[in-house]
Computed example of a mutant assay.
Amino acid sequence: MASGQQGPNAPGAAADPAVAVTAGSSGRESAAAKALDPCLRQLAEISAGKGRWGAGDLGSLREVAAAAAGRGAPLTALITEYLDSACRVWADLPDACREESVEGLAAVASAHLRAVADATVALTEGYETAFRAAIRGEEATRREFVDDLLEGRTNLGRLAERAERFGLRLLGPHTVAVARAANLFGAGDPATRYVEEALITRFSVRDVLTTTKDGLLVCVSSGEGTDVCEAFATAVGNAVGDQYQVAISRPRRGPGGIVRSHQEARSTLDLAVQLSLPARVVHASDVLVFQVLGRDRAAITDLVATVLGGLEQARGGPQPLLDTLTAYFASGCLNTATARRLGMSVRTIAYRLSRIRQLTGHDPTDPDQRYILQTAALGARLLDWPSHPLQSAD
């Protein structure tokens, strides 16, 4: 110490504890240290006066912590800086505090420790509140981007710029997979986190985007292959068990292609449910014929009524003969394979096919007439006929 200067513990030193803290804290250049300096002066006064923080003082500490969170400073660094400074405050308390009785000194120490504890809690609360707010803001921004991406609600150029922030490249083809489970998927729930972590572990974050929408789990992957989508389906199965179904779109290019692929995947998933398809993973390319038929409901209704309407005259209704017709086409139009599939005799299958020819006027064994019957049978599945009566387009 330079000659003629008085230290905080020297005879005649200023009794104001804030002077001691200012002297003890000089030379510290960190943003956290500078922001904490006023709080440390207040801590010195509280300790010397055996008082407590006021509500406004604690609010100021929370603001300091919130500012630190905004700068990206770790909470541990902030608390460490404060506790180190609190130790210096104690060491720099005026001699008057140390010359008190044992009881008085104990009261000073108690006030100091209590103030340090309260300040630590306030700093932690302020930091965590600001951090949670930042996370919610980031989640809201990501949700807005995802909605715009999947629904095509914004300028494509602007969308591509925003995609870079989330590590997604919109150039080239993309494939979309959509999963439905017994329980709705939600952002941040265990099943969603499991699938996200499984994909991130295996693939680059620039090649895959996983999100939730309307209770479904959506995966957007770059490239024309389905490796990511297949891994997505496997992860979904591991996360939720047996009660799930995944639909995978065909790959399309650009941000607009993602919108179309998302729509196709969702419509494929709805179609799989409507047709009671048993497969866990359904590719859009495998159900294109149903999508084509479904685009003109009036026409397919008329086709089913015209071609298969006669089956309603059958004893027991049209369903047994329609099931036989569906199994016959699925078995390659082979009576033996159809009988095996349905657990019936070959004679029974032959009789039913003959009965279908009599009631509809179309012979399923005739290659020229087979296509009409098969298309009508597909339309019946799409319309859920005969469980639901056909609605006339007139």
Rank of each mutant, 00 (worst) to 15 (best):
Q6D: 00
N9A: 15
V19L: 15
V21I: 14
T22K: 12
A33N: 04
A35H: 06
E45M: 12
S47Y: 03
G49F: 08
L61R: 07
R62T: 08
G70R: 11
A77T: 09
D92W: 08
D95W: 09
D95I: 04
D95Y: 10
A96I: 03
E99V: 11
V102H: 14
V108W: 13
V108S: 14
S110N: 04
A111S: 15
Y127N: 12
A133C: 00
I135A: 05
V146W: 00
D147G: 01
D148F: 00
E151T: 04
G152A: 13
T154N: 10
R158H: 11
L171I: 10
A181N: 07
L184W: 11
G186M: 03
A191V: 03
L199A: 15
R206P: 01
V208G: 10
L216Y: 12
C219R: 06
S221I: 07
E224D: 01
C229I: 01
D242N: 04
V246H: 07
P251N: 03
R260N: 09
A265N: 12
A272H: 05
V281C: 08
V282A: 13
R297C: 09
L303T: 15
V304H: 13
L311P: 11
L321A: 13
A327H: 05
G332Y: 03
N335W: 05
T338Y: 05
R340L: 07
V346F: 05
V346G: 04
R347P: 05
Y351Q: 10
Y351G: 07
L353T: 06
I356M: 11
T360N: 06
T375D: 01
W385A: 06
P386F: 07
P389R: 14
L390E: 11
